[in-house]
Amino acid sequence: MIVFVRFNSSHGFPVEVDSDTSIFQLKEVVAKRQGVPADQLRVIFAGKELRNDWTVQNCDLDQQSIVHIVQRPWRKGQEMNATGGDDPRNAAGGCEREPQSLTRVDLSSSVLPGDSVGLAVILHTDSRKDSPPAGSPAGRSIYNSFYVYCKGPCQRVQPGKLRVQCSTCRQATLTLTQGPSCWDDVLIPNRMSGECQSPHCPGTSAEFFFKCGAHPTSDKETSVALHLIATNSRNITCITCTDVRSPVLVFQCNSRHVICLDCFHLYCVTRLNDRQFVHDPQLGYSLPCVAGCPNSLIKELHHFRILGEEQYNRYQQYGAEECVLQMGGVLCPRPGCGAGLLPEPDQRKVTCEGGNGLGCGFAFCRECKEAYHEGECSAVFEASGTTTQAYRVDERAAEQARWEAASKETIKKTTKPCPRCHVPVEKNGGCMHMKCPQPQCRLEWCWNCGCEWNRVCMGDHWFDV
């Protein structure tokens, strides 16, 4: 396979590697080409510095992935760790964990309700045991953590790749202090920090972006993250068709209702045909949960890209028209025109101005929308079919299609509260000796007794199943 190397943020060049090629071997190839010592090179990928003893497969490097290699003399205490030698983080029983690669970060837990604080980093599902597709590297999971809308060759929703760059020099040479644990960490600028490894760059702020994971991409090709779309790892039924499908869209209502993408497309087109989208002054033209839940309008309007190009163009047109109407304007009634106009409040005669090729020149009556006339309008008909009709959803289907309910059931079956801080902690095999993952707590306690870890627990039921 081919990976592209950008040395000291210059133009990239291809390097041929195998899945079992080590990072140090990659350094040696680059060092020979650039005429520099291999031990002064640092390989940066997806916000993480890659260790010498890791392989291309370990690092989730795919065909035509772009890695950054910078030349920086080692500072005291760094060289041993980078070589894969006596790194205290690798000691058996050590409590410190390697910062998780962005290629394996899962933010789907952050669609849980606000009262489930902490689960994004504490609760991990076991539903990723799908067998890898044919042709994928051994052991590589097909679980997708992110979804994007690819405006490039795909023109559809695709699995996405999370990447990070330095907000100062805009190069992907920043190593994160810690990985993101929720969508806010990724979507809110300057929320996460790190250290830029580019020479002479003092940058410390992280800037995240997404790429389409279905095809090789260049540095400049980015895609918009659709953070309401998630892999259906909890096997929730769709609120409309009641099938279990994946991926799904999880509405931001209190129940976190789930809808499959085909039904979401149908829901949007139906509402669009009836012009029953909601115009929100802050958000724009949007839709609420299909069950009509309060405070559930979709905030990231790129989710409506699921409509496809033709329907999305209609959505944008109707949204612009609705904006004009909300501002007190009118639409030209001549067939084939429909231009938005903003006449004076007491102006009865409205002319669709033909300047700049935008208007048709038609003069019409503001009251009856017919060709302009003197005197009273002959008839004014009330528009028919403008009443909002509820999208029919079966109550039982709505009850079963809740992301929140599956989460709470998982928590109930696989977790116990920490005796000190009461945060839910998952036990997935292993011994009875637990350690609270909350940095402010870190209590060592017994899963069996529910009390602080002691010699009695150690001698009596340390390794009970």
Rank of each mutant, 00 (worst) to 15 (best):
V324G: 04
G336R: 07
N313Q: 13
I122N: 15
C323R: 15
L174Q: 03
E96V: 10
N254I: 09
K299N: 10
Q155K: 14
N254C: 07
G139E: 13
A230I: 07
M434D: 01
V67D: 01
N235V: 04
C166E: 01
N254R: 09
I142G: 12
T387N: 14
Y312K: 01
R275K: 04
S255E: 14
M192Y: 03
E221G: 08
A320D: 15
P216T: 10
G213Y: 06
A371N: 10
G292F: 04
T222A: 09
E370Q: 07
H215G: 02
L226W: 00
N454F: 01
V465F: 15
L107E: 15
G93T: 14
V330I: 13
S145V: 06
N235P: 02
G308K: 03
S296R: 00
Y312I: 03
S205C: 08
E409F: 09
V148N: 01
P202Q: 10
G203M: 02
G12R: 05
Q25T: 07
T83V: 14
C166L: 00
S145M: 06
V224S: 10
G135K: 13
A291K: 11
T55C: 06
S223A: 15
E207G: 05
A401P: 02
G213R: 06
G340S: 09
F463G: 00
G160Q: 01
V157E: 04
P294G: 13
K32M: 13
F210G: 02
A31D: 00
E374D: 09
M80N: 11
T83R: 11
A92T: 13
Y391M: 07
P137T: 13
A339R: 14
V148H: 01
L102H: 11
T410K: 09
H422G: 09
L174I: 14
K413F: 15
W462N: 03
C431I: 11
N144G: 06
L61K: 00
C95P: 15
R402D: 02
E399D: 12
Q25A: 08
Q57D: 10
E444F: 05
C263W: 00
G152D: 14
S198Q: 13
L261P: 02
S141N: 11
E399Y: 11
P132L: 10
I298Y: 01
E395P: 14
N144E: 06
H11Y: 07
E376H: 11
I411Q: 13
G118N: 14
V30M: 03
C368S: 02
V425Q: 14
L123Y: 14
W403I: 04
P333S: 04
G308L: 03
N90D: 13
M80L: 14
F381P: 06
A120R: 11
L325R: 05
D184N: 09
R334Y: 06
V5W: 02
T173P: 11
K151Q: 13
L287F: 01
N235T: 04
N313L: 13
P419S: 04
Y312W: 14
S127T: 12
A390Y: 12
R402A: 07
D53P: 04
Y149C: 03
V350F: 04
D20Q: 10
Y312E: 03
S101W: 07
Q57W: 05
R33Y: 05
V36N: 00
R97A: 14
R396T: 11
D274E: 08
Q197N: 12
K151F: 14
C253T: 00
K408N: 12
N448V: 03
I306F: 04
R305I: 07
E321V: 06
N58Y: 10
R104Q: 14
V43T: 03
L187Y: 04
T217L: 08
P159T: 09
W453D: 01
N232P: 01
R104Y: 09
L61C: 02
V15I: 12
P180Q: 01
S136V: 12
C352I: 02
C421K: 00
N190P: 01
C441S: 01
Q400L: 13
P159I: 10
S407G: 07
R305G: 07
E28P: 00
V30F: 04
Y372R: 03
D262L: 03
S167M: 08
Y267D: 00
I23G: 00
A31Q: 04
E309G: 09
H68C: 04
E221L: 07
A371M: 13
V350I: 14
P199W: 05
R256Q: 11
G338E: 08
R89L: 13
L187S: 07
A206P: 09
W183E: 00
D126S: 07
C241F: 00
H200G: 15
Q71E: 13
R42V: 13
C238Q: 01
A138E: 13
V380Y: 11
D130Y: 08
C268A: 14
V278L: 09
C253I: 01
R442P: 05
V248W: 01
Q165H: 09
K412M: 12
L272D: 01
C95K: 13
V324L: 07
V456K: 15
I239C: 06
T237P: 15
D106I: 04
L287H: 02
C169W: 00
E376C: 09
P247N: 03
D394A: 06
C421T: 00
C95N: 12
Y143N: 08
E221S: 09
C238V: 01
R420G: 14
P14Q: 04
N356F: 12
A172T: 12
Q78H: 11
Y315C: 08
G338F: 06
R163L: 11
T175E: 13
L272N: 00
R156A: 15
P153Y: 08
F210Y: 04
N254W: 06
Y391C: 05
G118A: 08
T415G: 07
C150V: 02
P153Q: 10
Q78W: 14
T222D: 10
A225M: 03
I239W: 02
Y149H: 05
G35Y: 03
